[in-house]
Nucleic acid binder design. Structure first.
Lengths: 335, 335
DNA sequence: CTGTTAGCGCATTCAC
DNA sequence: GTGAATGCGCTAACAG
């Protein structure tokens, strides 16, 4: 008994073996492959184990088998509403497959992400990196040690799931064009983000196709505030609608507009991206749905394939998107 | 070389020892207690290790030392904005102390939480349970095995950090009373939640003290929608202000009000709780600050004390709160 | 079906 | 300052 904590060392497999009058191997099998034992023995061993309070030591088991039954999922920021649905999707699948999901949040800092990955790498079967801020070479280096699946980052040679917002954004631009908007703005996200570049290009392409004007506005800081602060600039361009990098940014635009008493969508239209806010804004945000939950599920499936030895190394899953029409975009105001 | 994956087994301490022409013990010491070795040896060993790509096996190390260097933090729902700041606080402290933080999200399901705790228990030094939905006896049982700190749950005998919203809520009620409100509503949160009960009582007490009327409205479902759907009922009571269980619920109330074109705070006042939304609503939410980040930091400090053998078992840290005045509450409208 | 033997990779006594 | 032996708790052959 540990005098300091009042906690005693956990009972080991040997103690159970002695108490039950069997060998340690039998105890082990009673927990890992009950089918190999006679039902009676299994019951007896388990009964004794339960009474003593024996719980198999995961760490020892992992050392012996090389299998830990854990998967790590690392996101840039748990506070960003984009990730929870994705996390939930991955977790659901992990449960099904009998894995325990470890979550890590890097706070958008590459160094923190590096530390996390390194720490996790030793204790999990494989990892999923979401919107990683790591240099590609680092990701590849880690992938050398452990199976890695990336989400929202197009690293060739690794299994990856990409959310292709191009289609959804094209639909958004079409929608605005059909509503009579001739000049729109795109409110930028993190410059280093793969998603941001992809979305920017998509808006530009679609606008060109429809023959309407598109102006990209740099975001000076992250998400919400970026959107809010961009409002004066947006207005200065003379545009009648804005597509934002993500929903949080769009929410910022919404608030900035509200502060200026500019009614949405009557005088200005706003469209977000990701559909993570649901209808929690006013007016409810029209947005491009990203199906983040499916991304999480798919990543876990890919990882599972990887772990099972089946599954290609260089697979690229692309998730489609579509426009979700709610109430934040309407006809262009008469000039 | 594993033909299936193209990944080879990680180099072990022995390979480094051979390559460097020293014993395994020396390699081990080069990483764990460099002070015991001559500087030259340390440098040489590390150089060789780096070249070979040797990384100490955490699992083996943990089995040998009984120390894993991990701490688990389990929250009911990563999607709830209440938790990210708390997580961040804990993570910052964990970094400082050299621990790696494992996150778990139970989706508000006690069974999931149970599974998570059980899985984690074997791989961490200790755990932090935030707003746990587990029966007290289960928490106690786990605490028998591993040091546990709880947040927002008053489990006697365990180190716990509680956010005492009473003071902040009293201030909120005072604020409303001073503004001339005579009848207010409290929009309830999860019935099973310790925080909810505490907050409800606090509102009631303060209202009684100030001689104003308080009506509690049950939330039919979770957070945002609960708030939005409660609006008709709120209005039906004839109240002129509402205090919501948390900011997300308050945001729902705000949207419900906006949908009915009821201007806030001119015609109705809303106050939230937790201060997790910042100024991202319109109008910016007046709320009771909960200092969630400090709760996370404090919990980790307590756990550290626990692990170091110092620190009491039955310690109860109470964090104070205060009213943050922004723009969602104003003078009671003239009747 | 069950017991025996031999590691998994590392940290840690002891000797030297 | 460094090496040789021992064990952490468990699983996985191999016998019987």
């Amino acid at each position: 008994m540990d005098e300091e904590t009042g906690r005693r060392g956990a009972p080991t497999i040997s103690e159970v073996a002695d108490a039950a009058g069997v060998s340690r191997a039998t105890v082990s099998r009673a927990f890992t492959r009950p089918g190999m034992l006679s039902p009676g023995t299994v019951a007896r061993v388990r009964e004794v184990a339960g009474r003593i309070g024996y719980v198999p030591n995961q760490v020892a088991r992992a050392l012996s088998t090389g299998r830990h039954g854990n998967i790590a999922l690392i996101v840039p920021d748990v506070a960003n509403p984009f990730f929870p649905p994705l996390i939930r999707g991955a977790q659901a699948r992990a449960d099904l497959a009998g894995y325990c999901l470890f979550l890590g949040s890097s706070d958008e800092a590459p160094e923190r992400e590096e530390t996390l990955v390194a720490k996790f790498a030793g204790q999990v079967e494989g990892l999923i990196l979401v919107s990683s801020r790591l240099p590609e070479e680092r990701i590849r280096a880690f992938a050398e040690r452990r199976p890695i699946v990336v989400i929202n980052r197009d690293v060739s040679g690794l299994p990856r799931v990409l959310i292709d917002t191009a289609r959804g954004i094209a639909a958004a631009v079409d929608y605005l064009a059909d509503l009579g908007h001739r000049r729109i703005t795109y409110v930028t996200g993190p410059a280093a983000s793969w998603s941001n570049q992809q979305r920017r290009h998509a808006v530009r392409r679609a606008a060109r196709r429809r023959g309407i004007e598109m102006i990209a506005l740099p975001a000076h800081r992250a998400s919400f505030e970026a959107g809010r602060e961009a409002v004066p600039e947006i207005l200065a361009t003379g545009a009648t609608a804005a597509i934002a990098f993500d929903d949080v940014t769009a929410q910022g635009v919404l608030v900035g507009l509200a502060e200026r008493r500019i009614p949405v969508p009557e005088r200005f239209s706003v469209i977000g991206c990701d559909d993570v806010l649901g209808a929690t804004t006013f007016p409810p945000l029209t947005t491009v749905s990203a199906r983040c939950d499916e991304a999480g599920e798919m990543a876990l499936d890919l990882l599972e394939d990887q772990l099972a030895g089946r599954g290609l190394r260089d697979i690229r899953c692309v998730l489609d998107t579509r426009l979700v029409v709610r109430g934040s975009a309407g006809p262009a105001p008469a000039a």
